[in-house]
Amino acid sequence: MTAANRPTTKRLARAGIRDVAAAAGVSITTVSDALNGKGRLPEATRRHVREVADRLGYRPSAAARTLRTGRSGLLGLTVTTYGDEPFTFTEFAYFAEMARAATSAALARGYALVILPASSRHHVWSNVALDGTVVIDPAEHDPVVAELHRRGIPVVSDGKPGDSPVHAWVDNDHEAAVVAILDHLSSAGARRIGLLTGTSTDTYARQSTRAYLDWCERTGQEPVHESYPAHDSRAGAVAADRLLARPDRPDAVYGLYDPNGTDLLAASRRYGLRVPDDLMIVCCSESDVYAGTEPPVTTLSLKPRLIGTTVVELLIDAIEGGGPRSSQGQVIPHDLIVRASSLRRAPRTTISPPRAPGIG
């Protein structure tokens, strides 16, 4: 086949921002604002521009954006509680849902989310050009947050940051959530409520445990609690067994982590305890598995999808808005999903069935 007869493949030109502006009948600035979530445009205009951009196959050039704005379009996400095992947290339903929602929120604003380890022995942080970072459950005086702040990288935390320098934070009211659970169990008939908690210093474990101890002091109950490293699921099963083996065994337990619910169900069977008659159970979990256990287990939801979306929105606003750190906070409501494991049945009066005729 000669060169003259050889078929040629014409490379399709990539649609540019000018093409989108011309097809949509708007200015280049309007296209940029519509696709980047900026400016004060009518929602109908934003939707129209995005539909035109999708139809033309327009994709912003990452290199061009970096040159124009000095930003990479990359957001980091890390969980400092799991520094030595950076991706273990994805095995938990809360973190998985939160990360999925955060990823979607980032993509909607033209950013990508990168999950990174928190341990200082990992050098990847210096090799990835991040515009900002979400830190989940920062510890008091968190070294990761301090280092990011030193480098001028905006940080938004999932969890109250204590003294750590963040631009903003999002969290639940853990004290109110714990009090609601304890009051629920008490009103259902519990007289000695136990707690399975973590040994970490993150705000979730610290505030939840403090709320439990304060509630016990206020109601005159002696605390009955066991703690364990939250990232070690085997340790959780041991702690649940340890709690039910105590001479002052509780008749209700709240577990701060998943899979505390299944751990407590298994331990109750080993000790011959009926749930909820002998032991009521509540655990904090986003997993659907507890709707199908026997009995179904009451769970506390911390709304991770809403939190994931909110932290990313606040982070991108900090990146694109610049300005001084505001340390603003947003509190996300919790949701107690009550199931059979925390609803103790009222005592029943036994009525003998009628006897058959002729039987004395």
Rank of each mutant, 00 (worst) to 15 (best):
R270F: 11
R270C: 13
Y271G: 14
Y271Q: 15
Y271K: 15
G272V: 14
G272M: 15
V275K: 14
V275M: 15
V275Q: 15
V275W: 14
P276R: 14
P276Y: 13
D277E: 15
D277Y: 09
D278T: 06
D278I: 04
D278K: 05
L279C: 08
M280D: 05
I281L: 13
I281W: 14
C283V: 07
C283T: 14
S285V: 02
S287M: 07
D288Y: 03
Y290W: 04
G292A: 15
T293C: 05
T293S: 04
E294C: 06
P295W: 13
P295A: 08
T298G: 01
T299M: 07
L300G: 01
K303M: 03
K303C: 04
K303I: 03
K303D: 07
K303Q: 10
P304F: 00
R305F: 00
R305S: 06
R305C: 02
R305I: 01
L306F: 02
L306W: 01
I307Q: 02
I307C: 00
G308M: 05
G308Y: 00
T309R: 11
T309N: 13
T309K: 05
T310P: 01
V311H: 08
V312N: 03
L314Q: 11
L314C: 03
L314N: 08
I316T: 11
I316P: 05
D317Q: 12
D317V: 01
A318R: 15
A318K: 08
A318V: 05
I319Q: 12
I319H: 12
E320W: 04
E320F: 05
G321I: 07
G321R: 10
G323F: 03
G323K: 09
P324V: 13
P324L: 09
R325S: 12
S326I: 10
S326N: 09
S327D: 11
S327K: 11
S327H: 12
G329Q: 02
G329Y: 06
Q330R: 12
Q330I: 12
Q330D: 00
V331C: 12
